Computed example of a mutant assay.
Amino acid sequence: MSNDLHIQPPKIIVTTAAIFLVVFAAFGVIKLFNEIKRGEFIGQEFDRVNTIVVSGEGRVEAKPDIALLVIDVLSKGVRIDSVQDENTRKMNAVISYIKEQGIADGDIQTTSYTTRPAYDYPDGASRFLGYLVDQQIKIKLRDFSKIGTILDQVVAKGANGVPDLRFDIDEKEELQAQARGEAIEQARDKAKELAKQLGVDLVRISSFSENSGPYYPEPMYARAEMMKSASFDSAPIIEPGQTEITSNVTIVYEIK
């Protein structure tokens, strides 16, 4: 019978040593790879790209073909159900009148409907006054000859006023493209002139960006108090004026 004694190292020591060897080997491989990559560029220079940046602006004016009106109906009272019923009745009368003027359902949109309590604060104390129900619709009007009459009649039907009236162009994509084309042409001319003055050649466009948007005339406002206090022999005449479409571009040219 053999009495030889075999002593084995603890398992945790073997595992730790194996992990250490793997990590050390990986570190060595990464370091070697980086050294090789660094050696590829020794004695070489990175290509340097020279550029110039130019901007251009294009503007196109056109006569608006739609009017956007926001009509407001506000009701007040102590009982919430009565206030809601009154507000609904008035707004339905307004919408019925608008449809009678030939405005399509798709050109009428409810934009807000809010119900809230109203309070007064005499001497810092809260006093309940009742409830407010406020409903607004936005209509798109294509026949400008009806604007004045509608402004007058919606108040007679129960609206409190027209807090927003502005003019716009329904399909402005073609005008936007025209403004963009003018802006690009202006930027291109600037780049050619600048390259000539600097004694360099334009190679290609390396980047392009655009910031564009329509600029509206000053919005008009028609409040119920103003309209009710005035005695119109005829409906007010509303002039749409002009709408301006703009495009601002920035172009970066590579030069040599």
Rank of each mutant, 00 (worst) to 15 (best):
residue 94 V to T: 00
residue 160 N to G: 13
residue 79 R to A: 11
residue 56 G to D: 02
residue 162 V to R: 03
residue 149 T to F: 07
residue 126 S to M: 13
residue 60 V to S: 06
residue 103 I to E: 01
residue 142 R to S: 10
residue 147 I to F: 01
residue 135 Q to S: 12
residue 139 I to T: 00
residue 137 I to Q: 01
residue 129 L to S: 06
residue 132 L to E: 14
residue 74 L to R: 14
residue 169 I to F: 01
residue 175 L to V: 11
residue 53 V to C: 00
residue 151 L to T: 06
residue 155 V to H: 11
residue 106 G to M: 00
residue 92 N to F: 12
residue 137 I to T: 07
residue 64 P to S: 08
residue 76 K to N: 12
residue 164 D to W: 09
residue 165 L to I: 13
residue 121 Y to F: 15
residue 100 E to G: 15
residue 152 D to E: 13
residue 128 F to Y: 08
residue 158 G to L: 09
residue 153 Q to I: 11
residue 172 K to F: 10
residue 138 K to A: 11
residue 157 K to T: 01
residue 88 T to V: 13
residue 175 L to Q: 10
residue 100 E to N: 14
residue 91 M to T: 06
residue 158 G to R: 04
residue 165 L to A: 05
residue 160 N to K: 02
residue 151 L to M: 08
residue 155 V to W: 10
residue 62 A to W: 03
residue 86 E to A: 12
residue 86 E to S: 13
residue 83 V to R: 09
residue 152 D to Y: 14
residue 75 S to G: 13
residue 64 P to C: 06
residue 146 K to V: 03
residue 89 R to C: 02
residue 110 T to F: 02
residue 111 T to R: 02
residue 114 T to I: 10
residue 108 I to W: 08
residue 91 M to L: 15
residue 68 L to N: 13
residue 163 P to E: 10
residue 84 Q to S: 11
residue 94 V to W: 06
residue 113 Y to I: 11
residue 63 K to A: 14
residue 94 V to F: 10
residue 139 I to W: 01
residue 79 R to N: 12
residue 107 D to F: 00
residue 142 R to Y: 04
residue 145 S to D: 12
residue 107 D to C: 05
residue 89 R to Q: 14
residue 153 Q to A: 10
residue 135 Q to H: 04
residue 123 D to A: 09
residue 150 I to S: 09
residue 147 I to L: 11
residue 54 V to G: 05
residue 157 K to R: 15
residue 81 D to G: 03
residue 102 G to W: 06
residue 109 Q to S: 13
residue 167 F to E: 12
residue 53 V to G: 05
residue 86 E to M: 13
residue 62 A to D: 14
